[in-house]
Design a binder for these strands. Structure first.
Lengths: 227, 227
DNA sequence: AGGGTTCTTGACGTCGCCTTGACGCCGCGG
DNA sequence: CCGCGGCGTCAAGGCGACGTCAAGAACCCT
């Protein structure tokens, strides 16, 4: 879940933001001073920071610089000051946005969404699972052999490989596999699995009779061995 | 050199921005309508867009969507409207920032700098997708064969190619394709897709009966193979 | 209003996927 | 030593998905 760090010395605003953001399913971390804010920044690793410039202990612009020294997290500045020069200083110090009090809550939420959305692409990547003989690309829904050659999989085959890959290295029980691929009403039809595991090994293993990546754990289930 | 596209129908503002930005060593491209703006967008490839919402020919939010369809360029919205709902709509449509008229020029410049600074590291993904037999130019909304010969596509054909190209290399499910092209109420009409995929292959594949770029993943969807 | 293009819809043949059953191998325990 | 259960292999049949074609409806531009 997305974590928001709110730095503000006014208790009513802090409380209002906490309640509203929590209701929107954000995780909220608060701080009342610049020093607290910088400490919370390091500890909580928020996805976005809401920062009031009017802090008691230090200049807001210095807080921005303190964060920008080591993090690229989006910073939305909140301030009662209307002076343009203040806005320019904050933005040039590395803030992403500047909202003047009093502000509409919906607007702030929208700017928050915009800030998070902008920084999202970096962490959008679905994992790629590599085994001794093939590579599973979960985002592309595709499996390649080590020589980059594409392997054609049927929908059922893919769902099995996907389920195994999402639990890469760990044991997946036959029942869990059946639930995931055929639906909750299946659980004992292990013969389905035997047929499809054989097909997958034929397509993906160098020596299908001696599997190294798609292992059977007798009496329990199957395991995808990584690296 | 950083290029800025300014879309606004009021001549005085257009002139003021042009002069100020040019003096700051930005290259300025202007447009007075939404349609002009989208065209200039494709042609000039600006690093940032300043967009007035009050355009004569189309809703500003639609302009934002038109740009976001294929480009991640920062968009700063300029508007006389104070309504919070308008801001929320613009930001959620994909705008990066929202400045209310009348605005201070220094503030706008600072927000411009902030927008450019943010996108600087992430940029440089050409909105052009190349396959083994044709090239999709998302900005120009056109498809060329390898010999530069242009291919005429119907609106529906283009929307399908665009959707596939935006997920180049990745599998796109039939349902997603139907939602994207025909609307959310469609999801099972896979026969539409079969007809149009056949037409596209006839226009774009060297051997339509043996496609190499527009692949069918049986039971799952379609995939545009790149490079 | 008319001609041309585009979209929708139906029919039909083919192919491949899923299911299912039969059979053999192996290990374990009686 | 033999029976049994779990596992791997193979093949056949049914059926749904896919590609193709064509005709009618809807739309657009002039």
């Amino acid at each position: 879940m997305t974590t928001v760090l709110v730095v503000d010395d006014e208790a009513p605003i802090l409380r209002a933001l906490s309640i509203t953001l929590s209701a929107r399913d954000y995780t909220v971390v608060t701080a009342a001073t610049g020093a607290e804010g910088l400490a919370a920044m390091a500890k909580a690793r928020p996805a976005v920071v809401v920062l009031d410039l009017g802090l008691p202990d230090m200049d807001g612009v210095d807080v921005i610089r303190g964060i920008r020294g080591w993090s690229a997290v989006p910073i939305i500045v909140l301030s009662a000051r209307e002076q343009e020069q203040q806005k320019v200083a904050a933005l040039d110090a590395g803030a992403d946005d500047y909202v003047t009090k009093p502000f509409g809550m919906h607007e702030l939420l929208a700017r928050l969404r915009a800030a998070v959305r902008r920084s999202a692409p970096a962490e959008e990547q679905e994992p790629v699972v590599r085994t001794a003989s093939f590579v599973v690309d979960l985002a592309a829904k595709q499996v390649n052999l080590l020589d980059e050659q594409r392997v054609r999989l049927t929908p059922t085959e893919w769902q099995i490989i996907e389920t195994l890959a999402r639990h890469a290295g760990r044991l997946v029980t036959a029942k869990h596999l059946l639930h995931e691929v055929w639906g909750p009403s299946y659980g004992t039809e292990t013969n389905y699995l035997r047929v499809y595991m054989a097909q997958l090994r034929r397509k993906l293993e160098p020596d299908p009779s001696r599997p190294v990546s798609l292992l059977t754990e007798p009496g329990m289930g199957y395991r995808l061995v990584v690296e």
